[in-house]
């Protein structure tokens, strides 16, 4: 009896001493995930409070994936990063050495709890009849897409177009390059992040087609009204995998390693997957994928490893200084 009382007292005490201290996490993320993490952070805080009795506040920072990666390298104190593509987390591991190089093997599915793809957002009625990648490069079609140097979504879009060019020209690299060159001739301006481009297209009314993250296109439809825009799915596109990672050294310094790990793992839970699906990210979990199947039309998705030999190779060839993107956009 006395033992029980003292255990209860000790538990109560420790919860007063430790449990009541709210924990803070900083999630540095890319542009279009604002709404996703707003929902997810609230769900996780509830889950963590029920499980451990600890209040957790997750602070968010959003921007172009490349720019956010640069900020973490320069010292932005992220406990976790949830960026637009693996290379941007590789860069943090490589340049700042605050997480191990093999970070992508630590969580299931290449550390990408949800996937997405690149689709077309066009004006209602699709006046320019854009149905396929081949239509995007036609003369007289103005294409809105952000700058691949700073935006993750823009790099996925670029590679989706390149992949389409390869697959329809018997893997002829020169023809794929000509295809992408033609596409960027149709791009009047480059915003720095996906959200900026959506605003340019939807709010300011510039361009005929927006190359967009699938989730961003659905959100634009929701925000601006389905009577103004429609989403066009090409026959094939790229499987975009936006990964998540614990930033080991910063979390260790903050003493948040445990909660940060739980935070990322919770993205894979049924509730996390459902929140992802509701925000138009394709869930990995089969149960949720089946439940929300109606919302995600089927299309052929090729991936970066098979088509481009992985992010390191793709980044070096296409997006490094003086790379293919610089050559074709500079020559415009």
């Amino acid at each position: 009896m006395r033992l029980t009382v003292s255990v209860i007292l000790a538990a109560a005490f420790s919860s007063v001493l430790f449990g009541a201290t709210p924990v803070k996490l900083l999630n540095v993320s890319y542009d279009p995930t604002r709404e996703l993490y707003q929902d997810f952070n609230a769900a996780f805080a509830k889950y963590w409070k029920a499980k451990t009795g600890v209040d957790v506040t997750v602070n968010q920072s959003h921007g172009g994936s490349g720019a956010q990666s640069r900020s973490v390298i320069d010292g932005l104190q992220a406990d976790v990063v949830t960026l637009g593509l693996a290379y941007d987390i590789d860069a943090i591991a490589e340049k700042a050495k605050i997480l191990p190089a093999n970070w992508q093997t630590r969580l299931p599915n290449n550390s990408t709890p949800y996937t997405s793809t690149i689709v077309f957002l066009v004006r209602k009625g699709n006046p320019k009849h854009i149905k396929e990648w081949a239509d995007v490069v036609r003369d007289g079609v103005a294409v809105i897409t952000p700058n691949p140097k700073t935006s993750g979504g823009a790099r996925w879009s670029y590679l989706a177009a390149w992949g389409f060019g390869l697959r329809h020209n018997n893997n002829d690299d020169a023809k794929a390059r000509a295809f992408v060159t033609k596409l960027y001739k149709n791009v009047p301006m480059l915003d720095s992040g996906a959200r900026g481009s959506t605003t340019t297209f939807a709010q300011r009314g510039i361009g005929d087609v927006l190359l967009s993250w699938e989730n961003e296109a659905h959100l634009a439809l929701k925000e601006f009204g389905a009577d103004k825009f429609e989403i066009v799915y090409p026959s094939e596109s790229i499987l975009a995998e936006p990964p998540v990672a614990l930033v080991d050294k910063i979390a260790a310094k903050h003493g948040t390693t445990e909660v940060a790990k739980a935070y990322l793992n919770y993205l894979y839970s049924d509730e996390g997957q459902e929140i992802a699906a509701r925000n138009f990210y394709r869930p990995r979990n089969e149960k949720m994928a089946a439940k929300y199947a109606g919302q995600f039309p089927k299309l052929t998705l090729f991936n970066i490893d098979q088509t481009f030999g992985g992010w390191q190779k793709a980044q070096a060839k296409h997006f490094a200084d003086g790379g293919v993107f610089d050559q074709i956009y500079g020559a415009k």
């Binding site: 900083l26 542009d31 602070n59 920072s61 959003h62 959200r195 900026g196 925000e223």
Partner: peptide, 21 residues
Amino acid sequence: GHIRGLTNTIPLHVEILYNEY
């Protein structure tokens, strides 16, 4: 660093709100 609630000044907050439709 654009951490909302922590390091956003008024002009940065305006930009965030605009970007969030």
